[in-house]
Design a protein around this nucleic acid. Structure first.
Length: 418
DNA sequence: CGAGATTCATGTGAAGTATACCTTTAGGCTTAA
DNA sequence: AAGCCTAAAGGTATACTTCACATGAATCTCGTA
């Protein structure tokens, strides 16, 4: 599709516009679907109420409340596994705070950055640059001294003449990659700022994360801590029901679907995001198959689709060299069913790279790429020593077989034809 | 037979290099008074 | 003379390479029972 020239595309569009498209859209609009409000199940949807998180809401609210009297609240550290509502709850509270502040004419601004997003905020420089962008400023993507970027950011903060709430989602990812100096620097800023103050709200999936950072930073970063326990199956059911009521028409969800979605997600440490996604994708599958009832079997299909999409997204986001590495793992693991060693992967990679017109990287670099892929959960590596015959990582794909086929095709296309 | 030394294939840390990009500065050119 | 553009100089972040050392259990060596 992407190879279709503009002219041809244009022609196609007009052709369809005249004959088929109107009908198509017309049918689509009148078609009986299961959704009323699809958005209500999407992961970025912010519901008005967050059930079973009342305690955390009051905790955070209490911590941040002094800001309304122009005091400086403590920095907060928020823990919890993925999908326990950390991000939503925090944003919910902060949003309400900002609204209240506006009413009372107290200057408060909030900045939200997700540190996990690759190439956006995974180094010190990029994080600060992203912070500036969030404030509406512009900054060069590279080339500036880091101090300079900090300075630019401070100036923007200073201009606010008030409180700035800095929400750093998934800080643990950032610190793991870029070190804890960033946090130290941000904390240190407060001493230099005259008219403004910064409050850090760190959100982390990693429960032991705080123990790994510099004690100086630790004491100032986690002045207050809030823990988000996982939802249990009943709470998940409750959440799912509430959202389904918003999202679906009446009586389109088969008995037991909610329970099954909740059970799946509860198995994965109570991940509500996953439960909701499962629900939404199941319904989409049902809808696409022209069913007006979301059935249990759709959930299984949905689960596979979600996993596949996740893998495909990750792979597409990878640079060419990582893709080549992954592809060579796939090729060699297909040849031999046992786990593969680093050396084998590197050999396969070298020939593949030259074949695809890439400059082969060194083994050192491939080793790093492998551990990155491991972190992404696409492969799994385990260092083993084979005694007299050296030490190596046992590498295996962490992708289920049916998804494997699709992605392999994708990689082959992306590499060989470029 | 068993304790310690060897050995292999690679993991891993540190330092160096190439590239791409940034700002500043200086010089040359144009323009307007 | 002032203003603007361009190119070189000087600087940085990032991705990668080079170098060097660390690892850890199967195997080897050699002393001992």
């Amino acid at each position: 599709m992407k190879r279709i020239s503009f002219k041809y595309h244009h022609f196609l569009w007009r052709f369809m516009g005249d004959l088929g498209l109107q009908d198509f859209f017309g049918n689509y609009a009148h078609k009986e679907g299961v959704f009323v409000e699809r958005k209500a199940l999407q992961s970025n949807y912010l519901p008005d109420s967050l059930p079973h998180r009342e305690e955390q809401i009051t905790q955070i609210a209490n911590i941040l409340a002094p800001s309304l009297r122009r005091g400086r609240p403590s920095n907060v550290f928020i823990y919890g596994k993925t999908g326990t509502g950390k991000t939503h709850t925090t944003n919910h509270v902060v949003h309400n705070l900002v609204v209240a502040a506006k009413e009372h004419k107290v200057p408060i601004k909030s900045i939200y950055v997700n540190c996990k997003l690759k190439r956006l905020a995974d180094t010190e420089y990029r994080l600060v640059a992203q912070l500036i962008r969030e404030c509406g400023g512009t900054i060069a993507a590279t080339g500036l001294p880091t101090d300079e970027v900090y300075k630019a950011f401070f100036e923007i903060v200073e201009e606010q003449k008030g409180l700035v709430l800095l929400i750093l989602d998934e800080v643990d990812q950032l610190v793991k990659k870029a070190g804890d100096e960033i946090l130290y620097n941000l904390v240190r800023v407060n001493e230099e700022l005259k008219h403004s103050q910064i409050v850090l709200l760190g959100i982390s999936n990693d429960l032991v994360f705080v123990d790994t950072i510099d004690p100086r930073v630790r004491s100032s970063l986690s002045e207050e801590e809030v823990v988000f326990p996982p939802y249990n199956a009943f709470q998940l059911q409750d959440i799912l029901r509430k959202r389904s009521e918003l999202a679906f028409k009446k009586d389109v969800v088969q008995q037991g679907v909610v329970e099954k979605c909740a059970a799946y997600a509860a198995r994965e440490h109570g991940d509500a995001r996953r439960a909701l996604e499962l629900m939404r994708v199941s319904a989409e599958i049902a809808e696409r198959n022209n069913h007006d009832l979301v059935k249990l079997e759709h959930i299984d299909q949905a689960e596979e689709k979600i996993e596949r999409d996740r893998v495909v997204d990750i792979i597409n986001a990878q640079p060419k060299q990582s893709q080549a590495t992954l592809y060579s793992i796939m090729l060699s693991s297909k040849k031999e069913k046992r786990n593969i060693s680093t050396g084998e992967v590197y050999d396969a990679y070298k020939s593949l790279a030259t074949q695809a017109g890439l400059r082969p990287l060194t083994q050192r670099r491939i080793s790093d790429i492998l551990s990155e892929l491991d972190m992404l959960g696409i492969i799994s590596t385990r260092i083993i020593s084979k005694g007299r015959y050296g030490r190596t990582s046992e590498i295996s794909l962490a992708i289920p077989a049916p998804i494997f086929e699709k992605t392999e095709h994708l990689l082959a296309e992306g590499l060989a034809l470029s």
